[in-house]
């Protein structure tokens, strides 16, 4: 515990926590988003230990049962418990999207910072590369990348990362560019920071608030993308539990009335995307020190 009169001029940690609490209290939507995110996290981290049935064990006698007290979301054509599969799938889907977004965030930040800070021919070349990537229909590009690199989960991550890099790079480039000659960047140079340090420790962190909104929207989008790739049979393979595959498999049974196979994984996808979209504003408020007062 450090109080305000403490002699240390360093950032008060209590202040940061209190700020998070303030943001959550002042905006109920953010609070809701964080609660939904917590549910997703619990599903991803502890899902396999919590579910009532083994998601991979088939039981032909119980095939295509509608939702009941034993099987909350019913069972699929092999008699596997849909609820267990939906919960367990959260880990894989979140892992793919978080890894992909982290990768594109890192690469996009570096490339965008370089382009925005030094400008010149580097900026021009990088921008044309991003334009080229964005010129493709992104989902088709991702399909092509996975098809070319091989049908594995890692390649889904790489493909999703590549198609997202331009969004981060452009955002960072613009944010860095407007601050390149800001007074505080010059002051940092006077304090003995080299260009690289000024960029990394003084200018780039100021680009974080808008980046957080992008990250959060992008997470939802990346989940959809991964599920989409699995839906058309790329990447994740059966019998692994994954929302995209489950929707794809369940789609065959909708016409015959077994709606629960497709609808529950579909709803979880919606839940995840909705969570991340709501989360953006709250995250921005938390990383932006100007929101404190």
């Amino acid at each position: 515990m450090t109080d305000l009169s403490s002699p240390s001029p360093r950032l008060n940690q209590d202040g940061a926590l209190a700020h998070v609490a303030y943001v959550l209290r002042s905006n109920p939507v953010t609070l809701l988003a964080f609660c939904m995110f917590a549910v997703l996290l619990v599903m991803a981290l502890f899902g396999p230990y919590l579910v009532p049935h083994d998601p991979l064990v088939s039981n032909a006698a119980q095939a295509l049962q509608p939702p009941s007290l034993v099987h909350w979301f019913g069972t699929d054509n092999l008699g596997r418990d849909v609820f267990s599969r939906v919960v367990v799938a959260a880990r894989l889907d979140l892992a793919i999207s978080v890894a992909a977004v982290a990768l594109s965030f890192a690469i996009g930040s570096v490339l965008g910072s370089i382009a925005g800070y030094w400008g010149g021919w580097l900026d021009t070349v990088l921008n044309r590369v991003f334009d080229t990537i964005m010129a493709f229909p992104l989902f088709v590009l991702a399909m092509g990348i996975v098809a070319a690199l091989g049908n594995t989960v890692e390649n889904i991550v790489y493909a999703t990362a590549v198609i997202n890099i331009p969004f981060y790079a452009r955002l960072v480039r613009a944010e860095v560019n407007i601050r390149r000659n800001a007074g505080f960047a010059q002051a940092a140079k006077l304090a003995g920071n080299s260009d690289l340090r000024v960029l990394a420790f003084h200018i780039f962190p100021n680009a974080l608030p808008p980046m957080m909104v992008q990250v959060s929207l992008n997470l939802g989008w990346a989940i959809l993308n991964a599920a989409g790739l699995s839906f058309i049979g790329l990447g994740v393979r059966p019998p692994t539990a994954e929302w995209g595959i489950m929707v794809a498999e369940g789609a065959n049974f909708i016409v015959s009335g077994e709606w629960w196979l497709a609808i529950f994984p579909g709803l979880s996808l919606m839940f995840a995307v909705f969570t991340f979209n709501l989360l953006g504003d709250g995250l921005r408020d938390i990383v932006d020190p100007r929101q404190r007062s």
Binding site: P9, R10, L11, A182, G183, F184, Q186, A187, A188, L190, A191, G192, N193, H202, P205, N206, P289, R290
Partner: peptide, 21 residues
């Protein structure tokens, strides 16, 4: 206003040149 990093406290701003130089 423009000459201070919005993410640094006053103390951190004063400390920056001291740390580096």
């Amino acid at each position: 206003t423009d000459s201070f990093n919005p993410r640094h406290t006053a103390g951190q701003s004063i400390a920056e040149p001291l740390k580096r130089l």
